[in-house]
């Protein structure tokens, strides 16, 4: 089923100069391979096309069931040079979680148990 990433993963973002990083973490072991297959560097670049002026790098961390994305040239110059409200990319985590992914329904429900969405959706 098509779901926003926030149904199956959570994230945290931060900055290094003009580069933002977004760490994307799967709620469950079974969802992680779907993130690896579907949340590619190209897709993330396309998703952030209005924010990220540079390239996107992706690193896999299966040990943490996480993917780390580096979004280059995304913070208006970074640090105190930047005029952006979110000059440190602190909300980019939530921005990435807006992306839509296709994940088998039973795996989404497994993730809902971990994330607490199963209780909230009742």
């Amino acid at each position: 089923m098509k779901v926003p990433l926030w149904r199956v993963a959570f994230a945290r973002s931060g900055d290094k100069g003009d580069t933002a990083n977004v760490g994307l973490i799967a709620f469950t072991e079974s969802v992680y391979p779907f993130l690896v297959d579907n949340v590619t560097a190209d897709k993330v670049k396309q998703h952030f096309k209005d924010i990220c002026r540079g390239s996107v790098d992706r690193y896999e961390l299966p040990n943490l069931r996480a993917l780390n994305f580096l979004l280059h040239e995304s913070l208006g110059g970074g640090g105190t040079v930047s005029l952006m409200l979110d000059a440190q990319g602190k909300t980019f985590s939530a921005a990435l979680l807006r992306m839509e992914v296709d994940v088998p329904e039973e795996l989404v429900h497994e993730a809902d148990e971990v994330s607490g969405w199963s209780e909230r959706l009742e």
């Binding site: 959570f10 945290r12 900055d15 290094k16 990083n21 760490g23 973490i25 961390l61 943490l64 780390n68």
Partner: peptide
């Protein structure tokens, strides 16, 4: 995990 990936 969230802290580990912060500013990574």
């Amino acid at each position: 995990t969230e802290q580990l990936v912060y500013e990574m």
